[in-house]
C-alpha cells in the first residue's frame, strides 16, 4: 500500500485534457531547438571534418600500402629476373668451363700420346741402332776370328809359321771382297 503510493507520485497543479499531449511545451521546444543546434553544429564543425579526415587517412594508408606492395612485387619480380639471368649465365659459364676442360684434356691426351709415341719410336730406333752396332761388332769379331782360324789352318796345312801380319791382311782383303759380292 505504502509502496504503491510512493510509486504514485503527487499530481502537478496542471489540469488538462489529453490534447495537451499533442501541443508542444514551449520550454521543451526551446530546449530541443538549442540542443539540436548544438549537436548539429558540433557535428558540422568538428565531428564531420574529423570523420572525413580519419577516412582520408585510412584511404591514404591503404593506397600507400597497396603501392608499397606493388613496388615490393615489382622489386621481387626484377630480382627474380636477375637471379634467373645470373643462373643462366652461371650455367652457360659452367658449360663453357666443362667444354674448355674437355678440350684441354683432349689436347693433353693427344700431346701425351704423341710424346709417348715419339719416345717409343725413339726407344725402338735406339734399340735398333744398338742392335746394329752389336751386330757390326760381333761381325768384326767373327771376321777377326775367321781370319785367325784361316791362318792357323793354313799354317797347319803348310806346316810352318807364316808371316801373320801379311796373311792377316790377305784374309781381311778377301773377306772384304766376299762382302762386296
Amino acid at each position: 500500500m505504502l509502496f504503491a503510493q510512493t510509486l504514485i507520485l503527487a499530481a502537478e497543479d496542471k489540469e488538462g485534457s489529453g490534447l495537451d499531449l499533442l501541443l508542444p511545451a514551449t520550454n521543451e521546444l526551446i530546449a530541443g531547438i538549442i540542443a539540436f543546434a548544438i549537436v548539429f553544429f558540433f557535428i558540422r564543425l568538428w565531428a564531420w571534418p574529423a570523420i572525413e579526415r580519419s577516412l582520408e587517412q585510412r584511404q591514404q594508408a591503404i593506397a600507400g600500402q597497396l603501392e608499397d606492395a606493388e613496388k615490393a612485387k615489382a622489386e621481387a619480380e626484377s630480382l627474380l629476373q636477375d637471379y634467373k639471368k645470373q643462373m643462366e649465365e652461371a650455367r652457360a659459364k659452367g658449360a663453357e668451363i666443362i667444354e674448355e676442360a674437355r678440350a684441354t684434356a683432349e689436347k693433353l691426351k693427344a700431346d701425351i700420346l704423341e710424346k709417348a709415341n715419339a719416345e717409343a719410336s725413339q726407344i725402338v730406333a735406339k734399340a735398333r741402332e744398338e742392335a746394329e752396332a752389336e751386330r757390326a761388332r760381333v761381325l768384326a769379331e767373327a771376321r777377326q776370328e775367321v781370319a785367325n782360324l784361316s791362318i792357323d789352318l793354313a799354317e797347319r796345312v803348310v806346316g810352318e809359321a807364316l808371316d801373320r801380319e801379311t796373311q792377316l791382311g790377305l784374309v781381311q782383303r778377301y773377306l772384304a771382297e766376299l762382302e762386296q759380292m
Binding site: 511545451a25 514551449t26 520550454n27 521543451e28 530546449a31 530541443g32 538549442i34 540542443a35 539540436f36 548544438i38 549537436v39 558540433f42 557535428i43 568538428w46 565531428a47 574529423a50 570523420i51 579526415r53 580519419s54 587517412q57 585510412r58 594508408a61
Partner: peptide, 30 residues
C-alpha cells in the same frame, strides 16, 4: 522554473551524442 526533467534529458541526449562522437574521433586511428 522552466527546466523540468524533459528539458534536462534533451540536453543530456545532446551531450551523449557529442560525447560519443568526441571519444570516437578525438584521436582517430588508422
Amino acid at each position: 522554473g522552466q527546466i523540468n526533467r524533459t528539458v534536462l534529458l534533451i540536453f543530456l541526449a545532446a551531450f551523449i551524442v557529442m560525447a560519443v562522437l568526441y571519444f570516437a574521433y578525438r584521436r582517430p586511428r588508422l
